[in-house]
Every structure is written in structure tokens, then in C-alpha cells.
Design a protein around this nucleic acid. Structure first.
Lengths: 324, 324
DNA sequence: TTGAAAGCGCTAACAG
DNA sequence: CTGTTAGCGCTTTCAA
């Protein structure tokens, strides 16, 4: 895959490299280069499929036009929605996106960020990979060092405690509070909260919203907290059975993530229960009517994060927390 | 985000840049540089968080260590599975991945590939964005020109007619034939095939497998062919109603993509029908038992494609078609 | 062991 | 209009 260089073009056309460079940079008219020469260059370049050497330009300009993005994984389709938003904005601003996944590993997350920065990314978008509550907490030291190095960065969906970084999150607390309250107003008196017990601020805020709404209405909170990534595990099943068998079984569920809600809905149905579920996520066409959805503006979040990052790269000040 | 250069390190440590370069390249021992000096360099670099300038290296070596990948979209989770496979292999070989989405636009696909190549990618992985049958066919000219320019490239999931490019696909024909045959052996006599009518070879092969299996058993084929991306559209619903109301309603369905199958399953259930469905895709935990799944080795495909691409980049010959 | 020097492909003055 | 020159940060001989 040998590539054509500017020198070769110049030699081929018997003109100077400067001329070629000028024309290709669109400064031909400015330097009063003959229309004819310009045209010769343009057409030669097109016909030969010349691509300027990006590394040489980047070496000169010290910017890459690349934004790195790190996700825990891309299997969950909401990550895809975030990517859509990010790409939409970056594309408009002539940035390219370099995506990697940390596969839920904190160590890999670091390695990947290092790689992205080594690759000269102008900025970084990060959905941090958070541990469960029974695991060691997220270590903010590395991210802190990046902040100190002045690496432009925006977090998505989750804050990292202990460091000051711009962050785009959902209105988790408010939406949870609202959803639970509306369950109560619809007559629910025993709302069970089902959630991954993950150290992500988004989850924590949802739990907080639930707890507060329940408390404000003088009800007892009850929880099913899961420690596993895979929602097909037995964990939910056994804990659910306990709840349903208890003296005061729930008459509504509040679920913090849509995957669990799908599984829960299926379990309830196959046990013959019809109990409404309020959950974060949106209904796939085939799910059941007892689901009440709390919409999640993932694409918006992606867009917003990309916008903020660009602002930050271009030196404008950026607020620390943006709610979507 | 000013970055430390090798020169600065050398000056700081009062030694030559060559020495620093040599040590950092791991050639310290080879050039018999004192352990002491080596250690000084290493620790300085670590403490200062030095990252070598990637563009300068790439400019020298004329390779980037970057592989580009283009997907129609990342919202479908099977794309995420492919990414997993790709990343697993690339990570082992110290390549980085640059992902973009074409958003189902042929034009954008080209623009994105150009950008990736401009960015110096060493190779390209592509899931081409295919049009529907009522649209203009995929234009293979651009891809053909890349092949002529000797750009290392591997296609995933779909072949492009008219160009010779290595391609990793599923055993679509065989699996379809097998699934339909097994429906017939289970007593089905009227199997309706439901599919996007997309100009993708994967889909076409599945349709071919269906047609052949039905024909081989002297049954009549029947189809519901959809022209839309979004499976929540009315199209399926009305066409399904026609089928169910016909004098010989289907007693089994064969569906080429899992999204449609989910929707179909839901429609059938809400109309009170219990008709088995064979489909490409895998069962989410909450779906119904009447689904018979044809497993799709997406992660395997991603791995295989990445392996082939690396072979190709390193100059080894690669077969045109690989089945997973 | 280390320094000097050339060069990767392109850009940006500057002097014709 | 066009050629010359001096880098961008790093790698790689070739000498010392």
C-alpha cells in the first residue's frame, strides 16, 4: 500500500512542492497561482487517489482531529445510542472517533486510555467502568492524573468521585422520585426496588430517588440488589421468590435498568403474577404492557458530551455537571 | 496539554537523545548502555508521564497500528458482539481500533472510509451498508478502487458482488436449509418466511436456503418481505394479518433476523396464536418458548475477520471466503 | 557507550 | 507565481 507523496506529484507535474501544497490547502487563489496549474494539480490528485500524509500534518500541527471514547462494552444497545449522538456532533466538526471498550475492567480501561492518548487524541469521552459495591471502589487516581495533565475529557452517565471533570448525566434522582411517586399515586403501597448494586452514580441516584419518594409517603422500602452482570442469573429469581412469598408481597416494582426489568417481567409472567413495573429504559415492541418507562436521552447525552468536549478542547470553560 | 519530548528528557538528564531513544525502545542492553543510565531514564519517564509522539513514530515507520472498522450502526447488539471479537484479537496484536458507523448510508460509508484511510489505518474491516431491493444496488466501484490501491480489507457478514475481497460470513444457506428442514420434520407443512428484503448476501443466502428446503420437500413457499429498517412499523402487522386470514395459514415461521422475530412473536401472542418460529438470533431471557434459535457466531466472525486482516497486512495470502 | 547527522512528508515563512 | 529553507519529534545508521 505505497502511497503517493506531494514530492512525487510535484516532480510528475514539473512544479514545486510549495505550489502543490498551496493549491491543496486551498490557498491557490490567495497566492495567485494560475488557474491552469491549479486545475492540473487538482485533477492529477483526484485521478491518482492521493491522500495527504496525515502523520506529517499532525506532526506539524500537533493536533490529530481524533476524539477517543471508552465504553464498558457495546453490547448494550444504549451504548450504541450514545455513540450516535457523539458521532453526529463530531462529524459536523470534522473530528473522527476512536472507540474502545474496557470490558468492565478498570485495568483495561487505563491501558486503553493510555493507548488513545498515545495515539494523539485531542480529547477523551469516557463512560467509566464501575465496580459492584462488594468490590474495591473505583480508583480515581489515574483519571486525576490526566486532569492534572490537562487532558480534555468529558464523562458520560457516571461521575467519578474525588475528581473534578465535566460530566453529562441524566436526571436520575428526579426521574426516579417522579416515577415512584406516580406509582404510589396509582395506589401502590409496597414498591420493591430492583437494581444492580453497582457503584455508579447513576444507579446510586436512582436508588436515592426511590428511597426518598418512598420515605416521603411513609412507606417501607424494600430491595432486590444484584451483584452480577448477567441478568439471566439465578440471583434475581431466588430473591424475587422470597419477595413474592413474604407476608407483604410487592404491588409494584421500580427497576433501575431495562435489562433487569425485561427479565423480571418475564419471571413474573411465567409465575402468573401481574404486577406493574416502572423502569429506566424503553419498551421494545414485544414487551408487556405493565411496564412504565422512564425515557433515557442517551443520544442527547452523547451529543451534549461531544459538544462540551469540543468547547473544552477549544479552550472555552465548561460546567462540571450537565443534566439531560 | 503540552507534552514532554525526548529532547527535553535528554537535556534534563544531561545525556543524548539517542541514548534515551535506545533505552525507550528496549535496545539499551543491546547497545550496552549502563544499567544506571537506563534506570535513570526509565524512572524519569514514568514519573513525568512521558508519552512518545505517535505521529513522529508513525511518520518514520509508515505504519499506524490502527485498524479501521465501519458498521452500518451500533444499535443492534450483534454489532457489539462483532466488536468484541475484533477487539480481542487486535488487542493481542497491539493494534488499535477506530470504529465509525455509516448510518446505513452508502455515501457516508465512503466518506468514512476515506477518513479512516487518511488517518493512516493499516487496514479496514467493513460491514457494508446494503440497500433494500427496491433501491439502487450497492455500488462496488469505490471498494473496487480500494482493492486496486491494495488497501488491506476484510468484509464481515456480507459479500460485495463484483469485487474480490476476503470476506467472513456465516453459513447462512446451510443453517437456513437445516432449520427449515427440521421444521418440516416436526410436522410443519406451511412455513412462511419473514425477512427484510435487503440486498445483503447473508439475507439472500438465508432466503435461498429456505426456498430450497421447502422445494425439496414439495411444499409451497410463502413470504412476508419487509422494506423497512424499523420493525415496529405497521408493515409486518398488516402482511401477517393477511397470512393468518388466508385459507392455508402458516403453521410455522422462518425469520431471517432476530428483531423481526421478536416483533412477530409478540404480534402472534397478542392475537392468540401459538405458532413456532425458527429464526436467526438468540433468545433473550424474556422471550417465548416457541422460538427456535439458529445461533450466530458473531464474536467468532469478528475474531476471524481481524485475524485475516492481520495476515493480509503482514503480507500473507488470505482466502476469499471464510465461513463461520 | 554516546553524539552527530540524515531523513520520514508536510508546512510556513521568506526571498526571489 | 515558484524555489529554498528550516523545522515538527523521533529513528536509525555511522563514527567517535
Amino acid at each position: 500500500m505505497k502511497r503517493l507523496t506531494m514530492k512525487q506529484i510535484a516532480d510528475q507535474l514539473n512544479i514545486s512542492r510549495t505550489t502543490v501544497s498551496l493549491v491543496l490547502k486551498g490557498k491557490g487563489d490567495q497566492y495567485r497561482i494560475s488557474k491552469d496549474t491549479q486545475q492540473r494539480i487538482i485533477s492529477y490528485v483526484e485521478q491518482a487517489g492521493y491522500r495527504p500524509n496525515y502523520f506529517a500534518s499532525a506532526l506539524n500541527s500537533r493536533t490529530s482531529g481524533i476524539i477517543g471514547a471508552v465504553f464498558p462494552d457495546l453490547f448494550e444497545s444504549f451504548m450504541g445510542s450514545i455513540v450516535r449522538g457523539i458521532e453526529t456532533v463530531l462529524y459536523e466538526h470534522d473530528y473522527s472517533l476512536m472507540i474502545s471498550t474496557s470490558r468492565f475492567s478498570h485495568q483495561r480501561e487505563q491501558a486503553i486510555i493510555e493507548n488513545i492518548l498515545y495515539r494523539g487524541a485531542d480529547g477523551l469521552l469516557l463512560v467509566p467502568s464501575m465496580p459492584y459495591h462488594h468490590e474495591t471502589p473505583y480508583n480515581s487516581e489515574y483519571i486525576g492524573s490526566l486532569v492534572k495533565q490537562d487532558v480534555p475529557m468529558v464523562l458520560i452517565d457516571r461521575k467519578i468521585k474525588g475528581v473534578t471533570v465535566p460530566c453529562v448525566v441524566q436526571k436520575d434522582y428526579d426521574r426516579s422520585y417522579g416515577a415512584v411517586t406516580s406509582c404510589i399515586q396509582n395506589g401502590a403501597g409496597r414498591i420493591c426496588c430492583v437494581s444492580f448494586y453497582l457503584q455508579a452514580t447513576s444507579i446510586e441516584e436512582r436508588l436515592r430517588g426511590y428511597a426518598r419518594a418512598v420515605r416521603d409517603h411513609h412507606l417501607e422500602p424494600s430491595y432486590i440488589l444484584l451483584r452480577e452482570q448477567n441478568p439471566s442469573s439465578r440471583d434475581l429469581q431466588t430473591k424475587l421468590a422470597d419477595q413474592l412469598r413474604s407476608k407483604e408481597p410487592p404491588d409494584a416494582f421500580f427497576v433501575t435498568t431495562s435489562g433487569i426489568a425485561d427479565k423480571l417481567s418475564w419471571l413474573l409472567r411465567s409465575e402468573g403474577f401481574t404486577i406493574p413495573i416502572a423502569r429506566f429504559g424503553s419498551t421494545a415492541p414485544w414487551t408487556h404492557q405493565e411496564l412504565m418507562d422512564i425515557p433515557q436521552p442517551h443520544t442527547e447525552m452523547g451529543k451534549k458530551a461531544a459538544q462540551l468536549l469540543i468547547e473544552r478542547i477549544e479552550g472555552r470553560p465548561v460546567e462540571e455537571i450537565t443534566y439531560c
